[in-house]
């Protein structure tokens, strides 16, 4: 009897939810896809995904006992992380894997609470600033990272708490969509990049690694779609 009343109240809650609330995730997802089609606007978000990719390589190198020598970012969205020491397998894997985690984390933490979103933004600013101090060695990368700092700082400074939450959610989805699509660029038959490096280390074909990254990104997207706002 009690269960029945609970189910009844849940179904009534679902009915009372508006269309935009029920499909909020997918609306944001479609919005993020549209943003990625806009030529100039999409560029900083591609850089952000590239930064998360390279910093994931670097942080994995540090965690596995190595060091970061240099991080380079390029305007076309490419990047390069030079490390010394650490586990080559994990460092190679965590480029795309890390970008997926960063995207998911950004969306999840922004969805938890507006204060959490604010704290996470400040942590992100600290990470970007320390990257400049420790690992950036060229002007172009310095410029790109400064643009990313401005992007995140503007989100924190000029947004009210509620809109900051939404903007970070969209940013997280943008990073996630980029990391969903990026591994597919490795399927160019040129055998270079992280997939080829993993194939060299493990003798497992590149397409398997690309599939793992793609499926992981789809899975994270699916899990986030089930998140209650």
């Amino acid at each position: 009897m009690l269960d029945f009343s609970k189910k009844a109240s849940q179904s009534s809650d679902n009915h009372t939810l508006g269309f935009s609330q029920r499909y909020q995730f997918w609306l944001l997802f479609i919005f993020a896809i549209i943003v990625l089609q806009i030529p100039l606007v999409s560029i900083p978000f591609k850089w952000l995904e590239s930064y998360f990719h390279e910093i994931s390589h670097g942080l994995t190198a540090i965690i596995t006992g190595g060091t970061i020598v240099q991080i380079q970012l390029f305007p076309n969205g490419a990047g390069l992380c030079t490390t010394r020491g650490g586990s080559s397998f994990l460092i190679s894997f965590m480029g795309y894997g890390g970008a997926i985690i960063w995207g998911g984390l950004l969306f999840s933490l922004a969805s938890v609470h507006r204060n959490v979103a604010r704290v996470f933004s400040i942590i992100l600013l600290c990470l970007l600033s320390s990257s400049i101090l420790l690992w950036v060695r060229d002007i172009l990368t310095l410029f790109i990272v400064l643009v990313l700092i401005l992007l995140v700082a503007a989100q924190v400074r000029f947004s009210s708490h509620k809109s900051l939450q939404k903007m970070l959610q969209v940013t997280g989805l943008l990073v996630l969509i980029n990391s969903l699509m990026s591994p597919l660029y490795l399927l160019d038959g040129q055998a270079r990049g992280d997939g080829a490096a993993l194939a060299d280390i493990t003798l497992i074909p590149e397409i398997v690694w690309v599939s793992i990254w793609f499926i992981s990104a789809v899975f994270v997207t699916y899990r986030l779609s089930k998140t209650k706002f």
């Binding site: 390279e54 390589h57 190198a61 020598v69 380079q72 390029f74 305007p75 076309n76 490419a78 990047g79 390069l80 992380c81 030079t82 490390t83 010394r84 650490g86 080559s88 460092i91 190679s92 480029g95 172009l140 270079r192 990049g193 992280d194 490096a197």
Partner: peptide, 29 residues
């Protein structure tokens, strides 16, 4: 021009083994 420079640098990843041997570092793109 900057894009070409970027591509050129990405092309150099193909020689990562040589660079690794010379400088003792790993390159991840």
């Amino acid at each position: 021009q900057s894009a070409v420079a970027a591509y050129q640098s990405v092309d150099s990843i193909a020689q990562r083994d040589n660079i690794q041997q010379v400088f003792g570092v790993d390159l991840f793109a």
